[in-house]
């Protein structure tokens, strides 16, 4: 199972890097979304895969008696999903507002904060 997931993670990462190299906000946004999905799968795989052994400790025991699935990665991934979801929503609104206010979604043409021909500092009185 691991090799398949590794290949999938690689595909997700490379697609997201390709998208993030674009100058258009919407593609970068999709790239970020793909990247966060790739990371979630990465954590999932890093937590080791095991089939059909739920991590439940029998009554009266202190520790599980056999090797069980790792319960931690799903907690980590859930946290990461919540965070990346809220960031995606925020960036979507931000990108939309920026597109409305600046009239472009090409970052090379967004030169309001750093104008193309900025005045030089004065050289003398």
């Amino acid at each position: 199972m691991e090799p398949v997931l590794c290949v999938l993670i690689t595909v997700l990462f490379s697609a997201s890097f390709y998208l993030m190299l674009s100058t258009h906000i919407i593609r970068v946004l999709l790239g970020v979304a793909l990247l966060s999905n790739g990371v979630n799968l990465l954590i999932f795989t890093a937590g080791r895969l095991l089939r059909e052994v739920p991590p439940i400790i029998a009554e009266g025991q202190m520790v599980p008696t056999m090797a069980t699935a790792n319960p931690l990665p799903q907690a980590l991934i859930l946290t990461a999903i919540v965070i990346s979801f809220s960031f995606f929503a925020f960036l979507l609104v931000l990108g939309f507002r920026a597109y409305q206010a600046l009239g472009t979604d090409d970052v090379n043409e967004m030169r309001v904060a750093e104008p193309e021909r900025e005045p030089e500092p004065p050289m003398g009185y």
């Binding site: 946004l29 966060s36 206010a101 600046l102 904060a113």
Partner: peptide, 30 residues
């Protein structure tokens, strides 16, 4: 308008940085 412009650059770059941080955390956990 300048704020939206600055915020786009700030937001994307920082989000990518924290996601890379998460990638490193994932590997470290592995």
């Amino acid at each position: 308008r300048p704020q939206l412009d600055g915020a786009v650059k700030y937001a994307f770059l920082n989000l990518i940085a924290t996601t890379l941080f998460l990638v490193a955390v994932g590997y470290l956990y592995g």
